[in-house]
Structure formats: structure tokens, C-alpha cells
């Protein structure tokens, strides 16, 4: 029976959802040893869904440091004879995973969409191609959060990490939190964008921004309304504004002129709401609603809030 080391991450409320999901995946591949690294993480660590949890808790581990963390993971792996290391595809996971793989001399698969004992699936070319693999040797993998069922709650033993924590010349001096509601367009996963169909600047504030907030999305705009002065240029999506590649681009009251399309056609999914059935945006949208946005947007927001 093979052993899998699962690197779990904590957040304010305990273990991150994605780590619990990966724990569920790991359980299908062998015996799971959970590993949580940080400072004052013992309580949260015990919630990790793994048969055994190793906790590396130290003052010097408060902030993520690839040199220290990778070394700890390698030591745990070597001590436990594990043949796989899994973690969530978070900013830490995607950073730590490759370094661990290099240290162990193992293969690496990052940002996997699917993972099981049958094999792994990764997105290539910005998701335009799905790449399947069935690795036979030992492997490190970071796995995207998805609709995986979360692992069963922990029911095993706890152990404190007893190995060596190396020194590192990296020194974290602070963490800056970015306020909610000002998500950067080029980094957003979801963008709610408004156009001339909104008819007035007030409607941007009453319809687009609240919907974006509900969806945890960034708010964007077409050139027409930026030119009209309804929103600042930083909101503009399109040829002369920003090029965006979110998972979901929701175009509201935007006709879809070629200059705008050039800025968002790289979106994974596009949904559009527009009263003109001939609007060019519908040719590129995956999902479209032909209708009055003044009726549809409030309904959409209410229903999303209830989810």
C-alpha cells in the first residue's frame, strides 16, 4: 500500500477547503500522512482529513519560505517512504511543489484538474487542451480546487515534526492585505462588465458593482462608457484598455464591438446579457440571455446571494 504525503494549508478558520479536497483525492491513492507547516497551527492541523498528521510548528515557520518548507516536506517523505506528495494548487502549493520535486528528484504535475489512481489531467494552452497522464514513478502534484468531495474528518494520530529546520536568507517583513471590492481586473477569476446598454452612470453603480461584489468578481467596462466618463480608464476591457483572461466574463449591456472582443476573447467562459439578439457579443458568448438587463441583473444578483 503506497504512502501519500499531503501538504495541508491553514486559513483563519482551520484547514483550507482545497486541502481537504486533496485529502479526499489522496485517500484514494494510498495511506495518507498529512503535513501542516506554520506557527501556532496545531489546533487547525488536527482538522486535516488524514490518518496521521505531522505538525511542523515553529516561530521561524510563520510565513511561507520555500527553502525551509521544501526541506521539511522532503524529510517527512524520506522518513515515511512515501511515493507521492499532493497539495492544493494554491500560490504556496504551486511554488512549493516544484521545489520539492526537484529536491526529491521526482516528476511534477502542477495545477491538475483531475487526479485519481487512474491518472491525472492537466490543462495545457490555457485550458484549450486537456493533457492526460498515468505516472508510474514517484510524483509531486498540486491539485486545483474543484467539485471534489472533501475528505473524511481526521481520525488518526498526531506527531510533531522532529527533523531539522534549515536556515534561510529570505526574511518576510510583513503581509499586506488587499481590501475586498477592489479586485484587479487582470487577475480576477470572474469579471462582471458593463456597457452602453446600462444607459446611465448611476446604473453602473447600482447594477454592476453590487453584482460583482456578490460574485467576488472584478468590475469591468467597455470603452464606450469609459469614454463617456462613467467609470475610470482602469476599468476598461478591450483593445485600448486591459486584456483579461478570467474563468468567467459576464458582459452586460455590451454589444461586442471588435475592439472589446480583442480584450476578453481569451476568457474561459463568456456569458452575455443584451436586449439586441443581433449583438455581436452573442457570437462569442457561451451563454446568452436576450432580454432587458434592468430586469435580469437584479434577479441574477438575488439568486446568487441565495446560493
Amino acid at each position: 500500500m503506497s504512502t501519500v504525503v499531503l501538504v495541508g494549508e491553514t486559513d483563519g478558520n482551520g484547514i483550507k477547503d482545497v486541502s481537504q479536497q486533496v485529502a479526499g483525492v489522496a485517500a484514494g491513492m494510498g495511506e495518507v500522512i498529512g503535513l501542516v507547516i506554520g506557527k501556532n497551527v496545531a489546533e487547525s492541523a488536527m482538522k486535516l482529513a488524514a490518518g496521521k498528521v505531522v505538525i511542523a510548528d515553529d516561530e521561524g515557520l510563520e510565513y511561507y519560505d520555500p527553502v525551509k518548507y521544501a526541506s521539511i516536506v522532503s524529510q517527512v517523505v524520506q522518513k515515511s517512504d512515501a511515493t507521492k506528495v499532493l497539495m492544493g494548487a494554491t500560490t504556496m502549493g504551486k511554488d512549493l511543489g516544484p521545489r520539492v520535486a526537484a529536491e526529491l528528484g521526482w516528476g511534477y504535475l502542477g495545477d491538475c484538474l483531475e487526479a485519481s489512481s487512474e491518472g491525472f489531467v492537466r490543462p495545457d494552452f490555457a485550458g484549450k487542451v486537456l493533457a492526460r497522464s498515468k505516472p508510474e514513478g514517484p510524483l509531486v502534484a498540486s491539485i486545483r480546487n474543484n467539485a471534489y468531495p472533501m475528505g473524511e474528518s481526521w481520525s488518526g494520530s498526531v506527531e510533531n515534526f522532529s527533523g531539522n529546520i534549515p536556515d534561510s536568507t529570505l526574511n518576510t517583513i510583513s503581509i499586506e492585505k488587499i481590501g475586498k471590492g477592489t479586485i484587479e481586473l487582470t487577475e480576477a477569476n470572474i469579471i462582471v462588465s458593463g456597457g452602453r446598454g446600462l444607459e446611465s452612470p448611476e446604473n453602473y453603480e447600482t447594477l454592476i458593482r453590487p453584482l460583482a461584489a456578490t460574485m467576488g468578481a472584478a468590475a469591468g467596462a467597455s470603452r464606450a462608457i469609459v469614454d463617456a466618463g462613467w467609470v475610470p480608464h482602469s476599468h476598461q476591457v478591450g483593445q485600448t484598455g486591459k486584456t483579461v483572461t478570467p474563468d468567467l466574463y459576464l458582459a452586460i449591456g455590451i454589444s461586442g464591438a471588435i475592439q472589446h472582443l480583442g480584450g476578453m476573447s481569451g476568457s474561459k467562459f463568456i456569458a452575455a446579457i443584451n436586449k439586441d439578439p443581433e449583438a455581436p457579443i452573442f457570437k462569442v458568448a457561451d451563454y446568452g440571455i436576450v432580454g432587458d438587463l434592468f430586469e435580469i441583473v437584479p434577479v441574477l444578483k438575488t439568486k446568487l446571494e441565495k446560493l
Binding site: 469614454d227 463617456a228 466618463g229 483593445q239 485600448t240 475592439q259
Partner: peptide
């Protein structure tokens, strides 16, 4: 002129 020539169709114009 319609205003599009001279590559202006790709440039910003004040409202």
C-alpha cells in the same frame, strides 16, 4: 473624414 484613418481608429479620443 470619418476620423478612422492615420491609425486613429486604434487610438484613444476624448469624448
Amino acid at each position: 473624414c470619418c476620423g478612422g484613418g492615420g491609425a486613429r481608429i486604434w487610438m484613444e479620443e476624448d469624448a
